[in-house]
Amino acid sequence: MIFLSLGLFLWVAAHLFKRLAPDARAALGDRGKGLVTALLVLAVGLMALGYRGAEFVPVYSPLPGMGHLNNTLMLISLFLFGVGGTKGTLYPRIRHPMLWGTVIWSLAHLAVNGDRASLLLFGGIGLWAVVEMLILNRTSWVRPVGGRGLKGDAMNLVGTLLLFGAIAMVHLWLGHPVFEGTYF
């Protein structure tokens, strides 16, 4: 749990550094981008190592059928991650789509994982996303304009389905099949 906690702390600190200490971040210039990137890579590595090595301590038992909810929420989450990049019809209408995607990702994983390490990892990242949105709303958010319309949405949908398939394969490779117990 130490690696997981440290990784989560680095994730939050690296992301909030620019928001909470803008002058210090600006003073670093382009070096700051490299530093933040390195901290985020280290954070992800520590979270993965810590999560995989954490003792399973059950906190609650997920309800039967939550795999269906998880998969549906993950599709929505991945679509929201792509909204800013593909600039479809939702681009100027949704505030912080990537952060909302992160919150939904977090809830999806909490629906199917009821152990202590999952609560720390998924709950912690979900909480960070909410805090990040609150800070952005008070400081620097500007509504985007324009977009590609339905073409952007179509590109996002295709990308979402491809990414979902890739993520499902990685989860299968790691021993966590996403469609286990799911019947079509």
Rank of each mutant, 00 (worst) to 15 (best):
Gly50His: 11
Leu161Val: 05
Met169Ser: 07
Pro144Arg: 14
Pro64His: 04
Ala111Phe: 06
Phe81Trp: 14
Gly159Pro: 04
Ala26Asn: 08
Leu120Lys: 00
Leu16Cys: 06
Met74His: 01
Lys151Tyr: 08
Val57Tyr: 13
Leu73Asn: 01
Leu121Lys: 08
Leu4Pro: 05
Pro144Phe: 07
Phe184Leu: 07
Leu121Cys: 03
Gly149Asn: 05
Ala43Trp: 15
Ala27Leu: 14
Leu150Cys: 12
Gly146Trp: 05
Thr86Gly: 11
Gly147Ser: 02
Pro64Ile: 02
Leu134Lys: 02
Met66Cys: 14
Gly181Thr: 07
Val131Thr: 02
Val103His: 02
Lys87Asn: 00
Arg95Ala: 08
Glu180Val: 11
Phe81Gly: 07
Leu121Ser: 15
Lys33Thr: 04
Asp115Ser: 12
Asn156Phe: 15
Thr89Lys: 03
Gly147Arg: 03
Leu157Trp: 05
Leu35His: 11
Gly53Gln: 13
Ile135Gln: 02
Asp153Ser: 04
Val83Gly: 11
Phe17Val: 01
Ser5Gly: 12
Ala54Val: 10
Arg25Thr: 04
Val12His: 00
Phe9Leu: 01
Ser140Cys: 14
Ser5Arg: 01
Asn113Cys: 11
His171Pro: 07
Gly53Ala: 04
Pro62Thr: 10
Thr160Met: 13
Pro97Asn: 09
Ala48Val: 15
Arg95Lys: 14
Leu40Ile: 14
Ala26Ile: 07
Thr89Leu: 10
Asp23Pro: 05
Arg52Leu: 14
Gly126Lys: 00
Leu120Pro: 11
Met155Tyr: 13
Ala14Met: 05
Trp100Tyr: 09
His68Asp: 11
Val130Glu: 03
Ala27Val: 00
Leu73Cys: 12
Arg143Ile: 04
Pro97Gly: 00
Gly101Phe: 01
Phe56Tyr: 13
Pro62Glu: 11
Leu127Thr: 12
Val170Arg: 04
Leu4Arg: 01
